[in-house]
């Protein structure tokens, strides 16, 4: 169906534009403003050009946070996507089990992010938490507050627990969209269950999987609250990701200039991924359906 061309439609979009511009463009311009000045106090500011950008890009702490961020995002994608597909395939397709599973799956997604942190903070403690206690009983020396590797594993497990249900839900609704005739045809041809997955289900899942992968990748790039509550970015810097790094610089140390310069770099990076995401979605919409 072809949409009609009508520029008066802008009148309907203006309220959205105004309200989002108020929360996005004005603040962003403020950040740009900070990023090129050295601010000592009211009325005492000097133009420093690209100085903060150079300093920020050379900051080894930022490099560390960036590498940790990439490693974290790739790790959780490598776990959540295959796991999500497997669980979606195993879910019941009819009966009371459908509603029950959907509700249970969605539950972790609706818990406030800091409560997710709190849940795991309690769960992973060796003295009062089931998870930590179980590991201790098994003779594993585990302490997420002291050992960087343990902290890292805990944050990854927490994210897998929190967000795999999203991948499952998306894949599940993708699977439900496959017409039964496809399976009947496969049965007539005597296809193995692997062939059914490889040649019927997986191709049909490409669309939702693209959305799931990009959403998870981008949201994991913005992760702040859960590690903040669980580990506070520590021990040392082991679980300090980009948002945490930025929030510490901006609100903790009040380094306006460098924090603003870093914000701009961070924002441009995310913008690049948003564009990839948008192009991918538009291709799915126009191409496959």
């Amino acid at each position: 169906m072809e949409k009609t061309y009508n520029n008066r439609a802008w009148l309907l979009v203006i309220p959205v534009f105004v309200i989002v511009a108020f929360s996005a463009i004005i603040p962003l311009m403020t950040v740009v403003n900070y990023s090129v000045q050295d601010i000592f106090g009211p009325g005492q500011r000097f133009f420093v050009g690209a100085e903060w950008y150079k300093e920020t890009l050379r900051d080894p702490r930022l490099h560390g946070a960036f590498l940790r961020q990439i490693a974290f995002s790739l790790t959780i994608l490598a776990i959540e996507v295959p796991l999500g597909i497997a669980i979606a395939l195993a879910l019941p397709t009819r009966g009371w089990g459908v509603s029950a599973s959907l509700v249970l799956l969605a539950l972790p997604l609706l818990i406030p992010w800091n409560v997710v942190g709190t849940i795991w903070q309690i769960f992973a403690r060796a003295d009062i938490g089931l998870g930590g206690r179980l590991l201790a009983e098994l003779g594993v020396d585990y302490n997420y507050a002291r050992d960087p590797i343990d902290a890292w594993i805990t944050v990854v497990v927490m994210d897998v627990w929190h967000w795999t249900p999203l991948v499952v839900l998306l894949c599940y609704s993708g699977l439900r969209a496959i017409p039964p005739a496809f399976y009947q045809a496969a049965q007539v041809d005597g296809a193995s269950s692997w062939a059914v997955f490889r040649y019927i289900q997986l191709p049909k899942l490409t669309g939702v999987l693209t959305i799931a992968v990009l959403l998870r990748f981008m949201d994991s790039f913005l992760i702040y609250t859960e590690p903040f509550v669980l580990t506070g970015g520590g021990p040392g810097n082991a679980t300090t990701f980009l948002s945490q790094f930025l929030a510490t610089a901006a609100v903790g140390r009040f380094d306006l200039g460098p924090a603003a310069a870093f914000s701009i770099i961070y924002f441009l990076f995310i913008l690049l991924f948003s564009w990839l995401f948008y192009t991918a979605i538009m291709r799915i919409q126009t191409g496959e359906r």
Binding site: V20, S23, P27, Y224, V251, I264, Y266, S274
Partner: peptide, 16 residues
């Protein structure tokens, strides 16, 4: 609009 959904809230802390 989409890019704002994906923007890191941490960027907007100080200006907000």
């Amino acid at each position: 609009l989409l890019s704002n959904r994906m923007a890191p809230p941490a960027v907007f802390l100080l200006p907000f």
